[in-house]
Every structure is written in structure tokens, then in C-alpha cells.
Amino acid sequence: MADTTSNVVGARFVDPKVLARIGSLELLARTVVDGFINGLHKAPYLGVSVNFAEHRGYMPGDDIRFIDWRVFARTDRFYVKQFEADTNANFSVIFDISRSMSFGSKGISKLDYGRYLAACLTYFCTKQRDRVGLVTFDEDIVTRVPPSAKHLDVILHELDRIEAGRPGSLAGPLFKATEFFKRRGVIVVISDFYHEPSQVLDALKPLRYAGNDVIVFHVLDPAEVDFPYDAASSFEDLETGRKIPVVPEKLREQYRQLVQEHITALTQQCSENRIDYALFNTATPLDHALFKFLAMRHKMTKSR
């Protein structure tokens, strides 16, 4: 997945295949991305400053009102003026790097999967001129990259070096993170959410109530969903270290049911609080998951 030949730090997270798949959906993607970003902008960010940011070449379809005629006069080429006002939405990823995220039954861990997700989303948002930021946490805030249009490299570097270490918590770190976001923006929370749904929502609500658009990416490993173990074994909690002897075949059905109940509860309660929820199985290809989410997001945006 990673491009080890790239010289760009963190470039391995931007999987060319993933981007190619999404790129092939250009028409939809543009609509989705524009609608996604613009839709986010619509209500909360009207009247924000319109400082000039940069020029770019005119592309068919660009609004001719934004052509900089002065530059045309000097260069005889069409350039479109880009204004910060169009692209300065904040996009932040709050990434759970607690020890439970290091679990991976089929090669890729949840942490890696979350890394790719965060990298992809950040890249896209950067492409849309959004300011991107990153907060990682376990039982406390670990790293924080404030939202900025120029922080893609920093974020990718940060994503590259993070490691899952300590046990995790949700309410405390998220509450602290709320303080970081002075401006409203889009906040993506990536975690495995091993907490009661009510606790999860209690942790997310401050972000939501601060005016942010909160998107929850629930990352789970297939083994966490299907519980495919056979032999009676001792199961050790990655975070607490506690061991429990388990006969999987006698436990599987009830476990699956509990997990599904948990997901259902999260979905329902997130929906009730206007928080977007998406479950990502690490066995699902990353582009599928992104596409699925963007499509869903688009529908929701249109419905607004």
C-alpha cells in the first residue's frame, strides 16, 4: 500500500490506487467534494474574510467572474483568483491511538487503517484548500497539529510516527480537544469506541455543541466483528492486561450480537445527535470505505 520510493514524508499514506479509484469517479467526486466542502461552508462560514490567496490556471467550467483580468492583460493568459474565503474551512482529525487500536488480525492494524483514512481525508481537504489539523489521543492528548492550509506535511509526518502505546480514554481527551477548536469546522473522530454508546456520545457532544460538524469513523477489525476463534484460549485485554479464559465457540453468537447491538446503538444515537457515523471494517478496501462515506455524506448534504 505504501509507496516506499516516495521522498515525500508520509506519502505512503496517500495510496495512488486509492486516489486513482476515487479520481475515476471525478464527476461524482467533484460534486461530492464540492458539495461536501461547500455544504460545510454554507451555513456557518458566510461573510468570512475574502483575502486573496493565490492564482491558478483557468480551467473550463471555472466561473469567469473570478478571472483576474489584470493578470490576463499582463500575461495574456487566464488565471483565476483564489480567495482564502472560499477554502479556509477547518478540517481536523481526532485520532485515537490507544493501545487497542494496534490490534490487527489480518496484516493491517486499526491504527494503520486509521492512519490511511486520516491521510486520505487530510489530503483531500488540503486539495480543497481547507485548513487541516490533527489531534491524537489515548488517555490524554498526545499530539496536536493546529489546523492550517500548510500543515499537510506536518500532519503526514505526525501520522507516520505515531504509535499505539497507552490505554485509551474518550471523554477526557475529547473535552480537552474541544478547547483547541476555536473556529467551527469539520471534525473527524477515528476510534474503535470501546466505550458504552452513551459515554461515546457524552464525549462527542461537546464537539458537536461547539458548532463543529462531527464525523465518527468507527474502525474495527474483522476479528472484532466476527470473532472467528476456535480453540479455548486465554484472551488478554490489550489495554488493561486482564486475562479471561474463553471457549470461543460457546461465546461467539452472543459476542456478535453484543457487537451488533453496540454498533446499532452508536448509529442510532449519533444520528439523533446529528453526528455522522460510519463503520469501517479494516478488511474493507480503503477506497470503498471513503467512497461509501462521501456518497453518504453527499446524500445527507443534499437533504439539508
Binding site: S100, D237, L238, R242, P245, V246
Partner: peptide, 26 residues
């Protein structure tokens, strides 16, 4: 039992929620 391979699992939250009587009956 002691020597069985220990399987590391992200969280025993759901395993602990499985009603205890099912183990006991077995």
C-alpha cells in the same frame, strides 16, 4: 490451560458482558 496461547484482544468489553451462567453451565 495455563500453557494455552494467549490471544491479545483489543477489549474484553463484550466478552465480559456475555452472561456468566453460560460458562458455568458448560
Amino acid at each position: 490451560r495455563e500453557r494455552k496461547e494467549v490471544i491479545e484482544f483489543p477489549s474484553l468489553m463484550f466478552i465480559r458482558k456475555v452472561p456468566f451462567r453460560s460458562f458455568r453451565r458448560q
